[in-house]
Structures are given as structure tokens and as C-alpha cells.
């Protein structure tokens, strides 16, 4: 009898001891899930953000790459994590696509948005001996459909979609330039330089080193107006008279129903992170587009992106 009472007391003590701990979030290391492989653009930004966020929160942040399935694995894991603030993730463009393509029921409503920190426009790249401008590329493709092949990501990935959207906007069937699915940008670039395919669609920072090396030439950027970081690259509209633009984006989010105080703590920390000189110098060194939006604006951005990408996918005939 005495023993049970003691046990109850002990349990109660344990309970009361553990409650206030919640208030001082974070009290242990945080896991940041990256749905893409180490070495890619998303991974690089995630590691930078993680290390700076670590300074703000005072607890280690472990970057975990959960790759595969065109990012679905990682995104699913973020969405399914316990909403306690100890598992967060980087969510990317592909989230705006999955449910339209029918590859996963996931959409932005499965997450608690924390901050948008980057947007990058898609671009069209060829070998130096390839078509001299976008107009010529499209003309060649129209002349001999299927002769020029393109790559840059898996089927239904943002680069694929950007390409399909471009072809669609140019009044061409999407299989005029067949898409060669690969596991990311590195094998796609390898295919381009080894003369196995003719076009690579991706964001400019991903190919910057190859462009500097003279192995790759960027024909056009899919933006409404020129990117101040790349003033020499024409927009699609300037290069070929086609009205088409599409941007990739990256942001930090947690699973749905993150406690409001945790979300606020994270959002406030992110607001400081994007102002840090380390973040700015990293982003500009790697030529990533700096575009910050706080939790509320990010939510709005996601809803808007979802709608725009949906329209694009349907137009390209990829919607399920």
C-alpha cells in the first residue's frame, strides 16, 4: 500500500517535472529532413540554414537526407512526423506537383509552413555546339520531333514540367522533345556533356560551374523578367516570344498541427537566419535566389503555387 502510494507520488513528480520542459522548446536536437540527396542544391541550402538556425535555437540540428521517389519519401516523412517541433523538413517545388500528378496525395495542407527562403527560375541549357538560341532549339525540335531529347530530373519533376509547359506554350506536343528520366541533375549533366541528350532543364545555380567551364550554355531563363544575378541570360519571352515562366522554391516546414508557440519560435528564428551575413554570402556565392516569406506569407505562397502548377500540369496533359 505504502509502496503503491510512493510509486504514484513518484510518477506524479515525474509528470510535473516533464511538463514545464515543453515550454523551453527546443530542449533536444532537432532533425531536419531533406528529401533530396546530399550534394544537390536543396541539400546545400538546408545545411547552411540548419547550421545558422542551430545558433539561433541553441540546440544541434541534424540534416537527414531521405531521398528517393522524386522526393516523395522525404516529404511524406516530414508530413508524418510527430508534430512536436523536433522533426522539421525542407519542402520543395515538387510538393506543388504530387497531387496533380497523382504520385502522392500530399499537398501543402499536410504541413505547417515556417518560412520560404529561396526561389529559383528554371532554365534551358545546351552544349556549346548545340542550338545557338531558344528559337533555334524549338525550330529544330519542331522540324524533327523526337530528335532532341531532354533531361534534368525524374518524370514529373519540376524541370520536366517546365519543359512540357514551355513546349505547350509554344503550341507543340509535349513529346516533341522526349524527356529522359534521371535521378537528379548530376546524371543528366553527364548525359548532356557526353552527347547522349541535347537539352538539360534545371535552375541556373545547378549548372553554373559547368557554364563557367564552357561545357554548357544557358539559352533562356523561365522568369517574367531577367534575373539580376544573371543579367546576360534572356527570358523565354525575349528569346522565343513565348509567354512562359516557372520557378522552383524551397522552404522550411513542419508536420501539420505544429504547436503555435513552437511554430512561432521557429519562424522568428528563421527571420533572423535570412538576415545573417553568412546566409546572404552563401546564397549569393552559390547564386541561389534569395526570397524570404514568413509563415503567413509562405502559406499564401504555397496556396498560390499549388494553383499555378496545377494549371501548368493540366495544360501539359500530365494531370491524373
Amino acid at each position: 500500500m505504502k509502496l503503491t502510494r510512493r510509486l504514484v507520488l513518484a510518477a506524479a513528480a515525474v509528470f510535473t517535472l516533464s511538463t514545464p520542459v515543453l515550454a523551453q522548446y527546443p530542449e533536444r536536437p532537432i532533425t531536419l529532413i531533406v528529401p533530396w540527396a546530399a550534394g544537390g542544391g536543396t541539400d546545400a541550402t538546408a545545411r547552411t540554414v540548419a547550421s545558422l538556425l542551430e545558433q539561433e535555437l541553441g540546440k544541434p540540428i541534424n540534416v537527414v537526407n531521405r531521398t528517393g521517389g522524386g522526393g516523395i519519401i522525404g516529404h511524406t516523412e516530414i508530413a508524418n512526423a510527430k508534430p512536436d517541433g523536433y522533426t522539421l523538413g525542407v519542402i520543395t517545388t515538387e510538393l506543388s506537383l504530387y497531387h496533380w500528378l497523382g504520385t502522392s496525395p500530399l499537398d501543402y495542407k499536410n504541413y505547417t509552413p515556417i518560412a520560404l527562403y529561396n526561389t529559383d527560375a528554371q532554365s534551358i541549357n545546351v552544349r556549346p555546339d548545340g542550338p545557338k538560341d531558344l528559337k533555334e532549339l524549338l525550330a529544330r525540335a519542331k522540324e524533327k520531333p523526337g530528335s532532341l531529347k531532354a533531361s534534368g530530373a525524374n518524370r514529373g519533376g519540376a524541370p520536366h514540367l517546365a519543359m512540357a509547359g514551355l513546349l505547350n506554350a509554344s503550341q507543340m506536343p509535349v513529346d516533341t522533345v522526349p524527356w529522359v528520366p534521371t535521378d537528379g541533375i548530376t546524371p543528366a549533366l553527364q548525359l548532356l556533356t557526353s552527347n547522349a541528350i541535347a537539352v538539360v532543364g534545371t535552375t541556373i545555380p545547378e549548372v553554373q560551374a559547368m557554364v563557367d567551364a564552357g561545357e554548357v550554355r544557358t539559352l533562356a531563363i523561365m522568369r517574367a523578367e531577367r534575373d539580376p544575378s544573371f543579367p546576360n541570360v534572356p527570358t523565354v519571352k525575349e528569346a522565343a516570344g513565348v509567354d512562359w515562366y516557372l520557378s522552383s522554391w524551397r522552404g522550411i516546414a513542419g508536420p501539420k498541427d505544429l504547436p503555435a508557440d513552437v511554430a512561432k519560435r521557429l519562424s522568428d528564428a528563421m527571420a533572423k537566419v535570412v538576415e545573417k551575413p553568412e546566409f546572404k554570402s552563401f546564397m549569393s556565392a552559390r547564386k541561389f535566389g534569395m526570397d524570404y516569406a514568413d509563415a503567413q506569407k509562405f502559406a499564401k505562397f504555397l496556396a498560390d503555387a499549388d494553383e499555378r502548377f496545377g494549371t501548368a500540369i493540366k495544360a501539359a496533359g500530365l494531370a491524373k
Binding site: A13, V14, L17, S18, R28, P29, P60, Y86
Partner: peptide, 16 residues
């Protein structure tokens, strides 16, 4: 693992 390698091992019942 917790301190140097920053692996989030669970503390569970011994958390207090």
C-alpha cells in the same frame, strides 16, 4: 552519440 555525434537517441522514461 547525443553530445558529439548529435544523434537524437530517445531519453524515454529516464528523461527526468
Amino acid at each position: 552519440f547525443i553530445r558529439i555525434l548529435t544523434v537524437p537517441l530517445p531519453s524515454g522514461l529516464l528523461a527526468p
